[in-house]
Simulated assay, not measured.
Amino acid sequence: MASHDDGDGCPVLDEYLIRAGCAFGGEDGCIAEARQHALAFLDQAEADYPLSVPARTRDLTQLVVSELVTNACKYAPGPVLVELRISTHVVDVVVWDSDPAVPAARAADPDRIGQHGLEIVKAVTEGLFIEQEPVGKRITARLALPGTPSRATAARSPR
């Protein structure tokens, strides 16, 4: 599987089946719109390619889109760009916003209300890559499709 680094630290697969991008204005309704865009993207991928995206992966993709777009709308002025990419092995969710500050997951705190989004994204993805851009930042979250060894499985496998 050939790959190259497009700058965000996340290897970009040469064999993406389909990619789609969309810009959102950062207003309240854009989060739901971004989730709908993600579902339409996954539907299109299944319709156009011999690919099955299980309900769990669809749900996790929507969750990741929702959390990343929510953070972008909350902390960065201006538009939010979302790109979705899929191969036979992974779904990548890429979100760009205009704030150059690199987010960090906070330490677990069961008494804290809110601000758990990045913790959630890190917990459900195979990788989370953040790159500062000349303007803003780009965050790539990678979700494994079934049949692809997950980080947990790979960590348990004997070498």
Score class of each variant (00 low, 15 high):
Asp28Val: 15
Thr61Lys: 05
Glu33Val: 05
Ile139Trp: 00
Asp92Ser: 02
Glu133His: 09
Leu68Gly: 03
Gly136Thr: 05
Gln44Ala: 15
Arg112Asn: 04
Glu119Ala: 15
Pro110Gln: 05
Ser3Thr: 12
Arg112Met: 07
Leu60Gly: 04
Ile18Thr: 06
Cys22Trp: 06
Phe129Leu: 04
Cys73Leu: 10
Gly147Cys: 09
Ser66Asn: 13
Pro134Phe: 00
Arg159Asp: 12
Ser3Ala: 13
Tyr16His: 15
Gly78Arg: 06
Gly147Pro: 02
Val121Phe: 06
Val124Tyr: 05
Ser3Pro: 00
Cys73Met: 07
Glu27Trp: 08
Glu119Leu: 12
Leu84Thr: 01
Ala45Pro: 09
Ala108His: 14
Thr61Val: 10
Asp59Ser: 15
Phe41Leu: 03
Glu33Lys: 06
Asn71Ser: 06
Val64Thr: 10
Val91Phe: 01
Glu15Phe: 10
Ser150Gln: 08
Ala101Thr: 14
Arg19Asp: 07
Ala34Gln: 02
Gly29Arg: 12
Ile113Ala: 12
Val69His: 00
Val90Met: 08
Ala47His: 12
Val90Ser: 09
Met1Lys: 08
Leu145Ile: 06
Pro134Gln: 09
Val82Met: 05
Glu131Thr: 10
Arg56Thr: 14
Lys137Ile: 07
Asp6Arg: 11
Pro134His: 01
Val91Ile: 15
Gly7Arg: 00
Lys74Trp: 00
Val90Cys: 09
Ile18Leu: 15
Glu33Arg: 10
Asp109Leu: 02
Ala47Thr: 11
Pro110Cys: 05
Asp59Asn: 14
Pro103Ser: 08
Gly136Glu: 03
Phe24Met: 04
Val64Tyr: 04
Lys122Leu: 15
Ser52Ala: 14
Glu27Lys: 12
Arg151Gln: 14
Ala23His: 02
His37Ala: 12
Ala155Trp: 10
Asp5Ser: 11
Ser66Phe: 06
Glu126Asn: 04
Ala45Phe: 06
Thr88Ile: 11
Pro54Arg: 04
Ala76Leu: 03
Ile130Trp: 04
Pro100His: 06
Val65Arg: 01
Asp97Gln: 03
Arg159Ser: 14
Pro149Lys: 08
Ser3Phe: 11
Arg56Ile: 15
Lys74Thr: 12
Pro79Asn: 07
Ala32Asn: 13
Arg56Asn: 12
Val121Pro: 03
Gly29Asn: 13
Asp8Trp: 02
Glu131Trp: 00
Ala38Leu: 08
Ala155Lys: 10
Ile130Pro: 00
Thr148Arg: 13
Ala72Thr: 04
Leu51Val: 11
Arg56Leu: 15
Ala123Glu: 11
Pro110Thr: 06
Cys30Leu: 06
Thr140Cys: 13
Ala105Asn: 05
Trp96Tyr: 08
His116Lys: 11
Arg159Leu: 13
Gly127Thr: 07
Val93Pro: 01
Val53Pro: 01
Pro54Met: 03
Asp5Gly: 06
Leu143Ala: 01
Leu118Thr: 05
Ser98Cys: 09
Ser87Glu: 05
Ala23Asp: 11
Pro103Arg: 04
Gln62Pro: 03
Gly21Glu: 14
Asp92His: 09
